[in-house]
Nucleic acid binder design. Structure first.
Lengths: 152, 152
DNA sequence: ATATGTGCAAATTCTTTGCATTAGA
DNA sequence: TCTAATGCAAAGAATTTGCACATAT
């Protein structure tokens, strides 16, 4: 169940390499922990919590703290994307740069599916057609307001 | 999406009273902390974190822990609504029961405005027209998947 | 060589829980 | 009365920070 409707998806290897390039382009060093994290995120869809990523990495590559630091650094340069499912922890996925997409999360089993559409109502309708019950959604818009733009 | 532009907004007093009724109807007791919390939430738009609500209440009405417990109880019976702006803490607002709405949050000053539309793309467009820069949004769909529905 | 990244421990922040006490209905 | 609600203290969970040491470029 992938929900994708005809996009060209890059291979894990290609995504991995373009992530390394982005790291280099942004003066970030390519280290074992970063390779390991990217390896997980390009091979598996996710999104995963820092802890889940840590568990999926080979034993002893690095500390969980390092996973947090790497993810944070890689989010700033848009190599990964941070998701918030409102359950108290953040999840990360590889940022393909493809069409903006959303997730549908099962409230019970916490399974995640990716959806390529981007309209709330259409999404809820689709979710119901996919057999989900009790469908709700959260949507928040973020930006920098006029006042703050002027302030700097 | 919505079509009707001239919502009747209830007065703070009316909202306050209907909240008390909902509490009674659900066998919840009407206590000083609950009155104080509802007083804040019906007079000010919010949404506010538990801590912000606590600060807006008269000094010494109750402990912050009680604010958490009351909000949680009131969320279950839909007196309040919990919002997640992805910054690590939850916010609560009075649930008017009116048309589903969203928020636009300034990434810099954290100001919140309420928007009555409900379509992601239209929202982002509107946000830009309102002068916000660097607009992004998060949207997640929640539901119970077929497997889990069958399981119970 | 040197700035950047990492490990470990400890701190922070937000939220929840345990349990004895208080107070609505 | 008697069960739900509260206070206080403490636990939990997720994430961040300080600082000495290690390593990529």
């Amino acid at each position: 169940m992938d929900g994708h409707m005809g996009h060209e998806h890059e291979s894990p290897e290609t995504n991995f390499e373009s992530a390394l390039r982005l790291l280099r382009d942004n003066q970030h060093r390519i280290t074992a922990p970063r390779r390991a994290i990217l390896s997980v995120l390009t091979r598996e869809h996710g999104p995963f919590t820092a802890d889940e990523i840590h568990h999926r990495m080979e034993e002893g590559v690095c500390d969980l703290v390092t996973v947090y630091r790497c993810l944070s650094a890689m989010e700033e340069i848009a190599v990964v994307r941070r998701c918030d499912f409102g359950d108290g922890s953040y999840r990360y996925e590889f940022n393909t740069g493809e069409h903006h997409h959303h997730h549908i999360i099962c409230r019970v089993c916490h399974g995640v599916e990716t959806l390529d559409l981007c309209m709330a109502d259409a999404l809820e309708r689709m979710a119901r057609q996919m057999g989900y019950a009790n469908v709700t959604h959260t949507l928040e818009i973020f930006g920098v307001c006029k006042k703050c733009q002027a302030a700097k």
